[in-house]
């Protein structure tokens, strides 16, 4: 028996047809989701990458986050601070995936020192930039993960309240983490 015939019988029985306003709402929500996708995809991929996942994993997670957003909006759930919502869901999905991957291969968090990108003007400058960059990266990697996450989220423009929501910590913890991280980074040039 085909699936379509089953559907039509049940739909007829329950007099269930998608109402016109339901369809138009769905289209409007799709447009909103697409707009937010265009706005935040890059930042979310950067953030997920900072948690030690590949761009491929990041793309999959971002797709899942925006599908969940579509569902969230269809369900008429709270719509304030969607940016914080997006990063929170992405953060949780990324951590889940990272745990699953770590079970198979040991990966470490965050921006790799091997990802060389150097707009070098001269060999001397290149060496100087490279050394400084490596120093900053080693300081960054030595930070507690929560401090790193606060930095990455702040770099994506999230306010302290949003960061607290994403990481499920207090506002005070956010400012302490950020201040500690920035102090250590600014001390990187001293010895």
């Amino acid at each position: 028996m085909s699936d379509s015939s089953r559907t039509s019988i049940f739909d007829l029985l329950l007099l269930r047809k998608p109402a016109v306003e339901e369809i138009s709402t769905s289209i409007a929500i799709e447009a909103t989701v697409t707009e937010l996708f265009e706005q935040f995809r890059r930042g979310m991929l950067r953030y997920i990458g900072s948690l030690g996942l590949s761009v491929h994993d990041g793309e999959e997670i971002v797709q899942e986050v925006f599908l969940l957003l579509f569902q969230h909006l269809c369900d008429r759930k709270p719509q304030e601070n969607l940016r914080g919502w997006l990063f929170r869901v992405a953060h949780n999905l990324a951590l889940k995936r990272r745990i699953a991957k770590q079970a198979a291969t040991k990966t470490t968090c965050c921006i790799s020192a091997d990802e060389h990108y150097d707009p070098r003007p001269s060999p001397e400058d290149h060496l100087f930039f490279q050394q400084r960059r490596d120093r900053l990266l080693s300081v960054l990697h030595a930070l507690p993960e929560r401090d790193q996450c606060c930095l990455y989220l702040r770099a994506e423009g999230l306010q302290y309240r949003e960061i607290a929501g994403v990481l499920d910590i207090s506002l005070g913890s956010v400012s302490k983490s950020l201040a500690r991280a920035i102090r250590r980074l600014s001390n990187a040039d001293r010895w």
């Binding site: 921006i111 960059r133 900053l136 990266l137 960054l140 990455y152 770099a155 980074l185």
Partner: peptide
């Protein structure tokens, strides 16, 4: 400095 490193990724 941090932002500079962070942006390199993208």
């Amino acid at each position: 400095d941090f932002i500079h490193i962070y942006r390199e990724r993208s």
